[in-house]
C-alpha cells in the first residue's frame, strides 16, 4: 500500500471575502473540506493590492504580494485563492520576481527590513484550477451526492483568471468551469459571454460603462435560457447580482437571474446545505440550486 501525502495549501481569502463576498469564503472552505483539500488560512495575510495599487505604484504592488508569498514559503505551502484579481496579482508578482533579477534584489532588501525572506518557491493557484486539474473527475464523482440534473448554467469566467497569461486555461475559450459543471450533472449553456469583461471597478467609477458591460452578460445569459450564472470572481459576482433592476430598466427587458459562486453550485451537488454555502447572503433567488430538478419543474 502506497502512502501519499496530500499537499496542504495556504488559503488566501482576500479582502472582499471578509465582508461583502463572505458567501464565497464560506462555500469555498466547506467545498474544500468535503473534497479533502487541506487549506489553512495564510497567517496575517495582507491585501494583494488588486488593480488600483498597480495603477499608482507597481513596485509597492509587487512588494505587497511578496510579503504574502514569503509567509506561505515559511510554511512550505503553495497559495490557493478563489478571487481572480488576487490570483492574477499574486501570480504576476511571482512571475516578475522570477524573471527580473534587479527587481528581485530590491524586493529582497525590502522584505529583510521587515524580517522576511522569499526565495521564489511558492506557486499561486486558483481553487477552480486545483479542483478540476489536480483532483479531477473521479474525485468529484466520488463525492457527488446530488447531481444537478437539468440545471442550465451560464459559466462566467470574467477576465483575470485566464488573461493575460492563458496558462490556467485558454484566454478566450476556457473550459474548466464547463467541464466541472458537466461532472456534477449540470448543463452549461452556450451564451458567448463567458470571458467578456463585467467592467470591474468601472461599476463604481464609471457606472454608465459598468451597467452596459454587466448588462450585456446578463442579457445574453437570459437569452440562452440559463437558470443561473456561475462565477469565479467576487467582483464579477457583485456586479452581476447587485445591479439587475437598474440594468433591466436600462435595457428595457428582464435581466433578473440568480448569480452563484462556482463553489456554491459545486457544493450543492456535493450535498452541502444552504448554510454551508451561505445562500442566505445572496441578493438573487439562488436557493434554486438546492431545489432539485429545476428544468423538470419548469417545463413539465
Amino acid at each position: 500500500m502506497s502512502v501519499t501525502t496530500q499537499p496542504v495549501y495556504s488559503y488566501f481569502p482576500g479582502c472582499s471575502l471578509q465582508t461583502t463576498n463572505r458567501a464565497y469564503d464560506v462555500s469555498s472552505r466547506n467545498v474544500a473540506r468535503v473534497l479533502g483539500l487541506e487549506m489553512v488560512e495564510l497567517e496575517d495575510w495582507n491585501c494583494c493590492g488588486a488593480t488600483p495599487y498597480m495603477a499608482i505604484d507597481s513596485k509597492q504592488s509587487v512588494l505587497l504580494s511578496a510579503r504574502n508569498l514569503a509567509i506561505s514559503e515559511k510554511h512550505k505551502r503553495d497559495i490557493v485563492t478563489v478571487c481572480s484579481s488576487c490570483f492574477l496579482v499574486l501570480y504576476k508578482a511571482n512571475r516578475h520576481l522570477h524573471d527580473d533579477s534587479s527587481l528581485r534584489a530590491e524586493v529582497r532588501e525590502a522584505l529583510q527590513a521587515g524580517g522576511m525572506v522569499y526565495q521564489g518557491n511558492v506557486k499561486v493557484r486558483h481553487l477552480l484550477d486545483l479542483i478540476v486539474n489536480d483532483l479531477g473527475k473521479e474525485a468529484i464523482e466520488r463525492h457527488l451526492v446530488r447531481p444537478l440534473e437539468g440545471l442550465k448554467v451560464a459559466c462566467y469566467y470574467g477576465c483575470q483568471l485566464v488573461r493575460p497569461y492563458g496558462e490556467v486555461d485558454d484566454p478566450e475559450f476556457p473550459v474548466l468551469l464547463e467541464r466541472l459543471m458537466g461532472w456534477i450533472g449540470a448543463t452549461p449553456v452556450d451564451f458567448g459571454m463567458g470571458t467578456k469583461c463585467c467592467g470591474g471597478m468601472l461599476m463604481t467609477t464609471q457606472p454608465d460603462i459598468g451597467v452596459d458591460l454587466t448588462g450585456k452578460v446578463l442579457k445574453q445569459a437570459c437569452k440562452a435560457e440559463a437558470d443561473c450564472i456561475c462565477t469565479i470572481c467576487p467582483l464579477c459576482q457583485m456586479n452581476l447580482e447587485a445591479y439587475q433592476s437598474k440594468i433591466s430598466a436600462r435595457f428595457g427587458e428582464d435581466c433578473q437571474l440568480p448569480v452563484l459562486y462556482f463553489t456554491q453550485v459545486l457544493g450543492a451537488a456535493l450535498g452541502l446545505g444552504g448554510d454551508d454555502l451561505a445562500l442566505g447572503d445572496a441578493l438573487t433567488p439562488v436557493e434554486m440550486v438546492l431545489a432539485g430538478n429545476r428544468q423538470g419543474e419548469r417545463h413539465a
Binding site: K59, V62, V107, A110, Q112, A113, G114
Partner: peptide
C-alpha cells in the same frame, strides 16, 4: 509595522 518598514525600504518606484 513590519509591512511599513518594508514599504519604506522599497521606496516609491516606477514600473517594472
Amino acid at each position: 509595522e513590519g509591512l511599513h518598514r518594508m514599504m519604506n525600504a522599497m521606496g516609491k518606484g516606477d514600473a517594472r
